[in-house]
Design a protein around this nucleic acid. Structure first.
Lengths: 351, 351
DNA sequence: TACTTTAGTGCAATCGATTACAAAAATTAT
DNA sequence: ATAATTTTTGTAATCGATTGCACTAAAGTA
């Protein structure tokens, strides 16, 4: 239980009878210090078990080597995967990742940003809350010269970079796939259209319908929460009408699953009568007995890319703000919930 | 785009023609400063948009208000949920949570601990890697007087607190439940017995069998990875013998699912012929068409409790090391994969 | 009035590392 | 050998906030 005696450069300097400045330079491999002393200092430092005090260094340099990540909830598969990507890309560069949750509330978001700025993070990554409308708090980050990189859910703020997937394309791919399965009356469960991502998925859906000359019935587009029950109730609503959909493209896997469960309860055959496609490629989609087709957002990759953008950003001249928009390609994982061609074949769920 | 002018207490002191010391005291509501000056300083600080420099403060006080969390992978539902709990409990107290991944490798774990100690975190939370045997790096944390709290996967190190679930009881409950379903030949898929958690689940299984006077056949206990394919292959192995199990208690939900898929492929009826119970209550277990019975580990609660232990720890006198072991009660979620009583009844999956 | 308290502030050191600038030591040139 | 360089090292300020100690002025006491 040796009491911890923090060793500082002063301790080293005293022991060697040289100045702390020399020690500091030697440890930083400053060529102005003779090789002899440099080696001596290094050796002594190691022997004394010297550990640099990052705090002092951070105070002096203004760089903490900490970055903050703000997400709605950390235990959502998508977000924790992005964070994983960020951590894995940044960790080798000596950065630590601080996580914050907004709980989908702008006010929390504002607070988190403030405390992060207070602790002098070198950068911030974030996916905005659903309730975020104004961007004052975000612009504030910019004005403090702290790089901010959006991922997935972004806001249009001049000078800020972002990494997203091509949600439009994701929506398009999903819809096109359904069309190719022979579906004509395709319903769409959209999310909160206040968020760009959902708007884009919706527009991708509309575009695909148009491109293939299929009418997108207005009543078939519903705003549905990302919950099983919401999906189920949406199905109930839809099936109350005279014209019933023969496919559902849900912008949420959860709503898609709820829909599937409800349809089964109603005795509707999937994918024979109705094809269903979700979005996000949540882990459960591939585990189901009837695996669910879904659009993958490559979250880990998204995190890695966001980290890369950040690294570029801090490398460049600090006066010049670069605005970089990285758009990743979504991938459609076709599974049984929409794959009519597997009906006669043995069931094989992809991935 | 006003260039960011960092306001310090010196700026305030200059403006008011008082010393920085007075400003500092006033801002900290030190009663030695007259109410008049205190209010004046506060007002001026607010007006000048002063923000305390946490780095300077941290350097002076030695407290960063940062804690580190080390987990194998952050995007596993269990771990991200624990982290959520930690974050939510600690955030109101002004702490930030830094996340690190060990990738199930001790060497990473050692590095992470070192960098965390270097950045002077006020505490460390961790779930050890599977490969962790020696505990030198952990004892080092102790010797630096940094509180460390284990959660879920702990090591026995004198003086260190931990928060876990009662895995023995979890194993017991699961097994007991299977016995009550009328199962007699219960197989067990255990995880890496090097980890306490798996050993305890196994022992809970053994104890339940013993208590109910049922023989635990040695060949029915297999070490199985936490992967679908491992569960499937384990089933194939088991069903190659003359005596076949009538139930499986898997220490992993993934292996349980793999087993279920394999059994279905073999035409074995679940739960009629074989009951299956998993462990962890992964989100997918309740979404399946045949929802899987599983033992819930209350991860968010575990995180919250770990955070509480930490808070107590730093409150207490620093010389006295308290060793607190919090053991949470696991909860068995009975679902269709093991619930024979629901066979004639309408399917209702709990939770 | 003279003297002790007490309240309110300021001075200066401190936390540990970095870095202009100055100074000393070692080399080279003349 | 001495001046001119070049190397190497030291001094002291700095990053911002905190705090023990000292000091001033006002209030209280005798």
């Amino acid at each position: 239980m040796a009491e911890k005696e923090k060793v500082t450069i002063y301790d080293i300097s005293k022991k060697l009878n040289i100045s702390a400045a020399t020690v500091s330079r030697a440890l930083n491999n400053n060529p102005k210090i003779s090789l002899k002393t440099r080696k001596l200092v290094m050796k002594t430092a190691a022997k004394m078990n010297y550990k640099q005090n990052k705090l002092a260094q951070a105070l002096k340099s203004g760089k903490t080597h900490n970055v903050g990540v703000i997400v709605p909830y950390i235990n959502r598969n998508f977000f924790s995967s992005v964070i994983r990507g960020i951590e894995e890309e940044l960790s080798p560069h000596g950065y630590h990742v601080i996580i914050c949750q907004s709980h989908e509330d702008v006010n929390n978001e504002i607070n988190q940003i403030n405390t992060l700025l207070n602790t002098q993070v070198d950068g911030i990554f974030m996916s905005v809350a659903k309730t975020t409308q104004k961007t004052d708090h975000i612009e504030k980050v910019l004005s403090e010269n702290t790089p901010l990189v959006f991922f997935d859910r972004k806001k249009d703020v001049a000078g800020l970079s972002s990494v997203t997937i091509d949600d439009f394309r994701g929506g398009y791919l999903a819809t096109e796939h359904l069309i190719k399965q022979g579906c004509k009356k395709i319903a769409h469960f959209s999310g909160d259209l206040n968020l760009e991502i959902y708007k884009n998925r919706y527009e991708g859906y509309i575009a695909a319908m148009k491109d293939y000359g299929i009418e997108a019935i207005k009543e078939f587009s519903l705003q549905v929460n990302s919950k099983l029950e919401s999906g189920a109730s949406a199905v109930r609503d839809l099936w109350n009408h005279r014209i019933k959909p023969d496919a559902i493209f849900s912008a949420s896997d959860y709503a898609a699953l709820g829909a599937i469960q409800e349809l089964k309860k109603m005795g509707v055959k999937i994918p024979d009568e109705v094809c269903v496609v979700g979005f996000s490629n949540e882990p459960f989609t591939k585990y189901m007995e009837l695996p669910i087709t879904s659009v993958d957002q490559t979250p880990v990759d998204m995190g890695r890319n966001a980290a890369k953008v950040f690294l570029e950003q801090i490398q460049g001249s600090k006066t010049l703000t670069i605005e970089k928009k990285v758009v990743l390609a979504p991938e459609l994982y076709i599974r049984d919930s929409s794959n009519r061609e597997t009906i006669e074949k043995p069931l094989v769920s992809k991935e």
